[in-house]
């Protein structure tokens, strides 16, 4: 479907946020789902790009992205008022406590652009305490800290170079916060680079704390037809675009 671009702005050195007038997607989108975006009309680039739903405000949908190639570069050049061809919401998102569900502790773990789908999740989780651990290469690349705080989340940051917060990996914070997981049921939600997701999965297994991880994969179709984004799980091969992108960490068979 064609939707109208409201805003397309640079929010950090490397990151852009696009706001779309997309009432249908806004109505049905669940945290962890994504949209397939055609970055240019015509046949170059040919395929759509999968981008996570970052936030929903009324009838508006936000996507957060960085320039990683030709498609996202073209996307960054789009102006407000222009139309965008997108399909969505697609995929299977996070399972999280809603309404009067018992909530326990919810820990959101974001690496780099992995914050994109987690802001929408933080917004949707019912009133429980949400702890957000954000990891990035440098201070400049920490995204959404303010937005998470606005939602009332407890936010901790980590950088590779120590320019903000703890120096090291976002998973280090998880180890340090072992006490958080005593007594109350907890759930980890993670999105970020593969090594981080693997580390979260190992932590989850070791400490017997359930984790849901959102995988990123190149996709041709995004709707389950091409079988180009397969992941090996304990219950066989799954499509990241259809059965995922969010999976139970215990299910994934890491290479």
């Amino acid at each position: 479907m064609r939707v109208k671009i409201f805003k397309n702005e640079q929010v950090a050195g490397h990151a852009y946020k696009m706001t779309l007038a997309a009432p249908v997607i806004a109505k049905f989108a669940q945290p962890g789902q994504f949209v397939m975006v055609k970055c240019a009309d015509g046949i170059q680039p040919l395929l759509r790009r999968p981008l996570g739903v970052h936030n929903v405000k009324g009838s508006e949908v936000e996507i957060l992205y960085e320039i990683i190639g030709e498609g996202t570069k073209l996307l960054s050049q789009k102006k407000s008022g222009q139309a965008l061809d997108i399909i969505g919401p697609l995929g299977t998102g996070f399972k999280f406590p809603k309404g009067s569900d018992p909530c326990g502790k919810n820990i959101l773990i974001a690496g780099g652009m992995g914050v994109a789908p987690l802001l929408f999740l933080a917004k949707k989780i019912n009133k429980s305490q949400v702890l957000v651990l954000i990891g990035a290469k440098t201070k400049q690349e920490i995204l959404c800290k303010k937005e998470f705080k606005k939602l009332g989340c407890n936010v901790k940051v980590v950088t590779d170079d120590g320019s903000a917060g703890h120096k090291g990996f976002v998973t280090d914070l998880l180890q340090d916060r072992g006490h958080l997981f005593k007594g109350v049921p907890a759930m980890l939600y993670a999105c970020g680079p593969k090594p981080m997701l693997k580390a979260v999965s190992e932590f989850s297994k070791r400490r017997k704390i359930p984790a849901q991880i959102s995988l990123e994969e190149h996709m041709a179709c995004g709707i389950g037809a091409c079988l180009g984004c397969i992941v090996n799980t304990k219950s066989g091969q799954k499509r990241v675009c259809k059965e995922g992108p969010v999976f139970d960490a215990r299910e994934i068979i890491w290479e």
Binding site: I43, Q44, P45, L47, M219, L227
Partner: peptide
């Protein structure tokens, strides 16, 4: 994997 890749057109 990887088993798809985009090319020119």
């Amino acid at each position: 994997m990887p088993r798809t890749c985009e090319t020119a057109a």
